[in-house]
Simulated assay, not measured.
Amino acid sequence: MKESDKLVVGFTTKNGGFSIEGYQTLNLGLHVQDVPSTVVANREVVAKQLEMPLSKWVCAEQVHQSRIAKVTKADSEKGVYDYKEGIPQTDGIYTNQTNILLTLCFADCVPLYFFAPKYNMIGLAHAGWRGTVENIGGKMIEKWMQEEGIPLHDIYAAIGPAIEACCYIVDDKVIDLVKNVLDDQETSFYSLVSEGQYALDLKEVNKQLLLKAGVSRENILMSTLCTSCEKDVFFSHRRDQGKTGRMLSFIGYKED
C-alpha cells in the first residue's frame, strides 16, 4: 500500500436520494421492500460522492449473527444489485486490499469499524443485540490477532451512530444474555424502566466487549448520535415501526 492511498470511511444519513414514502430518501438497503432500481440509484449517489464506484463495493447478507469473512477483490460487486448475492450469512467483513469498499446496512443496530493501519487492515461489523451477545466485535479482534498476526496495541475501533438507551427498551431475556457475555461484571449498560423492561445502551455493551477483548480504551471512539432521536437525520427500525430504510456504514482504501 502506498502512502498516498486514502482511507474512505463513514456513515450515511437518510437524506439525499430518490426513495419515497417510508424510505425517503437515501435508502441504501435492498431488503426492505423499496424499489430495487431506486436503491441502486441511491447507491450510485453515494458511490459518486466517495469516488468509489459500485464495481468496488462489497455487501453482505446480514443475518444478525456473528460470522466474519475476509474479502478480496474477487468479492467486488457482491450484493450491490441483489441482496441475496452478498457475502452469505455474514455480519462482519474485513480486508487488507485497496480499492474495495466494505459496506453494511443499518437502522438502529450498532456499526463497528476496525482499523490496523500498520497492517493495512480494515473491517466492519453489524451488531444488533443478537450479534452483540455473540460478541461479534470481540471475534473480529480475535481473528485479526490469531489469523492475521496483528498485535492488540495496533488495533483501533470506532462505534458509529445507533439507537441509544433513551429509545431502546428490552426484556429480561436480552438483559440476561448481555450480562452473561460480560460475565455480569459491568452493570452500567442498562437501567430498569418498569418490571421486566430495561433501557439498554447497546453501544456501551459493545465498547465493554472491545475492552474485554483487549483493545485499549484510547483506541476506541464512540459516536453520541442516537438513530431514533435524530428523526430528520437517520432511519430507525424501532421509531418507524419496521417500515423504514437503511443507512450504510463503509470503509475502504482508495488508491490515489
Score class of each variant (00 low, 15 high):
residue 44 E to M: 08
residue 103 T to F: 10
residue 107 A to V: 11
residue 120 N to A: 11
residue 112 L to Y: 08
residue 44 E to A: 09
residue 131 G to H: 01
residue 64 H to L: 04
residue 127 A to V: 01
residue 65 Q to H: 10
residue 106 F to Y: 15
residue 124 L to R: 09
residue 63 V to N: 11
residue 40 V to D: 11
residue 69 A to R: 13
residue 100 I to A: 12
residue 67 R to D: 05
residue 92 G to V: 04
residue 62 Q to L: 14
residue 99 N to F: 08
residue 117 P to Q: 12
residue 83 Y to C: 07
residue 90 T to D: 06
residue 53 P to F: 05
residue 110 V to T: 09
residue 111 P to G: 05
residue 82 D to E: 14
residue 50 L to P: 03
residue 84 K to P: 00
residue 40 V to H: 05
residue 40 V to F: 15
residue 134 E to I: 12
residue 53 P to T: 03
residue 70 K to L: 06
residue 129 W to Y: 14
residue 52 M to H: 05
residue 111 P to W: 05
residue 125 A to F: 09
residue 143 K to F: 11
residue 59 C to N: 12
residue 70 K to V: 02
residue 99 N to E: 13
residue 34 D to K: 07
residue 108 D to L: 05
residue 47 A to L: 07
residue 118 K to T: 00
residue 35 V to D: 15
residue 126 H to Q: 07
residue 48 K to E: 15
residue 110 V to L: 02
residue 56 K to L: 10
residue 141 I to T: 09
residue 124 L to H: 09
residue 130 R to I: 11
residue 126 H to W: 11
residue 48 K to H: 08
residue 120 N to P: 08
residue 133 V to L: 00
residue 62 Q to E: 12
residue 82 D to K: 15
residue 107 A to R: 05
residue 128 G to F: 08
residue 108 D to F: 06
residue 126 H to D: 02
residue 129 W to E: 01
residue 46 V to N: 05
residue 86 G to K: 10
residue 85 E to V: 00
residue 133 V to W: 02
residue 52 M to K: 00
residue 84 K to A: 14
residue 140 M to K: 04
residue 104 L to T: 01
residue 93 I to Y: 12
residue 101 L to A: 06
residue 108 D to G: 04
residue 93 I to P: 07
residue 56 K to S: 11
residue 112 L to D: 03
residue 38 T to D: 15
residue 137 G to V: 10
residue 74 A to M: 10
residue 108 D to M: 05
residue 49 Q to H: 09
residue 103 T to E: 09
residue 61 E to W: 13
residue 135 N to R: 10
residue 71 V to F: 14
residue 90 T to L: 10
residue 42 N to A: 06
residue 39 V to C: 03
residue 39 V to E: 03
residue 56 K to R: 02
residue 34 D to G: 04
residue 96 N to E: 10
residue 132 T to V: 04
residue 107 A to P: 00
residue 51 E to S: 04
residue 88 P to K: 12
residue 134 E to Q: 12
residue 50 L to T: 01
residue 34 D to L: 11
residue 67 R to T: 10
residue 136 I to R: 01
residue 79 G to V: 04
residue 109 C to W: 02
residue 125 A to L: 08
residue 84 K to M: 13
residue 100 I to M: 11
residue 67 R to K: 11
residue 122 I to T: 08
residue 78 K to N: 12
residue 94 Y to I: 09
residue 82 D to T: 13
residue 93 I to K: 10
residue 43 R to A: 13
residue 39 V to W: 07
residue 35 V to C: 09
residue 45 V to K: 03
residue 129 W to P: 00
residue 112 L to E: 05
residue 41 A to G: 02
residue 125 A to N: 04
residue 59 C to G: 03
residue 88 P to E: 06
residue 78 K to Q: 14
residue 134 E to Y: 07
residue 37 S to Q: 15
residue 46 V to S: 02
residue 128 G to Y: 08
residue 61 E to P: 01
residue 76 S to Q: 13
residue 78 K to P: 00
residue 33 Q to C: 05
residue 74 A to R: 13
residue 100 I to H: 14
residue 82 D to R: 15
residue 87 I to H: 09
residue 52 M to W: 08
residue 108 D to R: 12
residue 124 L to D: 01
residue 115 F to W: 13
residue 61 E to D: 15
residue 113 Y to I: 10
residue 101 L to F: 10
residue 33 Q to P: 00
residue 42 N to K: 07
residue 61 E to F: 15
residue 139 K to I: 07
residue 116 A to V: 05
residue 39 V to G: 00
residue 111 P to I: 14
